[in-house]
Measured scan of single mutants.
Amino acid sequence: TTQFTVHSPEQAEQWKEYAKQKGLEVHVQKKNGTWHVTIH
């Protein structure tokens, strides 16, 4: 599991796309103005 924080919805979307291409599961949670992205 990879977990990191991004600071814009655009970055979060890019990671979603990346994960989809790799066939991975991605979870994005918005918290205090940042987005926590978890890739399984």
Results as ranks from 00 to 15, higher is better:
K30F: 15
E25V: 13
G33D: 11
V6F: 05
K16M: 12
G33L: 04
K22D: 03
K22R: 14
H27A: 05
A12W: 07
T38C: 12
H7G: 12
E25Q: 12
K16L: 12
A12L: 13
F4Q: 03
H27N: 07
P9K: 15
N32Q: 06
K20L: 11
A12F: 05
H27R: 07
H40Y: 13
K20Q: 11
T2R: 14
L24K: 04
T34V: 15
Q14K: 13
E25R: 10
K31D: 09
G33P: 01
Y18R: 04
Q3S: 14
H7Q: 11
E25G: 08
V26K: 00
V26H: 03
V28G: 00
F4K: 04
K31E: 11
K16E: 10
L24F: 11
S8Q: 03
T2P: 05
W35Y: 11
E25A: 11
V37N: 00
P9M: 15
E17F: 05
T1N: 09
P9S: 14
Q21T: 10
P9W: 15
Q3A: 09
A12H: 02
E13M: 09
V37T: 00
Q29F: 09
T34K: 14
V37M: 03
V6A: 05
I39L: 10
G23A: 04
A19M: 05
A12E: 02
V26G: 01
N32L: 05
K30R: 10
V28I: 14
V26Y: 09
E10P: 02
A12M: 08
Q21M: 11
H36K: 07
K30Y: 15
Q14H: 12
I39Y: 01
T5R: 06
K31Q: 11
L24Q: 03
S8H: 05
K30G: 06
E25M: 12
T34Q: 13
E13N: 10
V6G: 02
V28L: 06
Q14P: 02
V28A: 02
H7M: 11
Q21W: 08
L24V: 06
K30D: 07
K16P: 01
W35H: 02
A12C: 06
E17N: 07
N32T: 02
N32M: 04
H7E: 13
E13F: 07
H27G: 03
Q14R: 12
W15Q: 01
V28P: 00
F4N: 03
T5E: 13
